[in-house]
Structures are given as structure tokens and as C-alpha cells.
């Protein structure tokens, strides 16, 4: 039995589904960030697999840039989260509906 590209794509889809479930069910913003990290990692697995099976470095390059973007997203997001927590004492998504009239 040999591993094919489809194995990795199915795995990538499964991980992406787990991340999407997390994004949809979480109301705590920290947990929501965790779920987005899972989404980005699922995409990275697919990128690396396509890079390997198509014999092209482009997939790995995109995975690198995705990792860089994820790192900066965490830095900015956690900073904003800390400011919000110091201001309100909560990081729940439901309490952020400040634009309701």
C-alpha cells in the first residue's frame, strides 16, 4: 500500500473541518484563536503534500508565508485581546455587540 496525495488531502479536509467546528461553536475569543490556528495548519499540510507529489517548491513557499502571517496574527490578536480584557474583564464574543442600536 502506497501513500497518495489523496491521503493527505483527506487528512487536510478533516483537520479543516475540526477547525471550522471550533470556529463555529466557540464563544470565548481565545478559543476562537486556537481554532483559527488549526485551520491554518490544516491548509499547510495540504500545501506541503501538493508540493511533494507535484514536484514543485511553490507549495512549501506558500506554507512558509502562511506561518509568517499566523505568527503576526497571533501577536496583534493577543495584544488586542489583552486590551479588551483590561477594559471589560471579559473576552466573550457575545459581549462585544457594542454596535447594537
Amino acid at each position: 500500500m502506497e501513500l497518495t496525495l489523496n491521503h493527505y488531502l483527506v487528512l487536510s479536509t478533516l483537520l479543516f473541518a475540526i477547525g471550522l467546528i471550533g470556529v463555529m461553536r466557540r464563544k470565548n475569543l481565545l478559543m476562537l484563536f486556537f481554532a483559527t490556528e488549526i485551520l491554518l495548519n490544516a491548509v499547510n499540510v495540504g500545501m506541503a503534500a501538493i508540493s511533494h507529489y507535484r514536484g514543485d517548491y511553490t507549495g512549501q513557499m506558500f506554507a512558509f508565508f502562511i506561518i509568517a502571517i499566523a505568527a503576526s496574527e497571533v501577536a496583534v490578536g493577543l495584544g488586542l485581546l489583552i486590551v479588551w480584557y483590561k477594559r471589560t474583564g471579559k473576552i466573550d464574543l457575545d459581549q462585544m455587540t457594542s454596535m447594537r442600536g
Partner: peptide, 13 residues
């Protein structure tokens, strides 16, 4: 972009 993220992280927290 990473530099901007670092500066914003320092400013925010």
C-alpha cells in the same frame, strides 16, 4: 509585516 506586528504587540500589551 512581522515588524509591524511586533510594534503593535508592544504598543497594545
Amino acid at each position: 509585516m512581522l515588524l509591524v506586528a511586533m510594534i503593535s504587540g508592544i504598543v497594545l500589551a
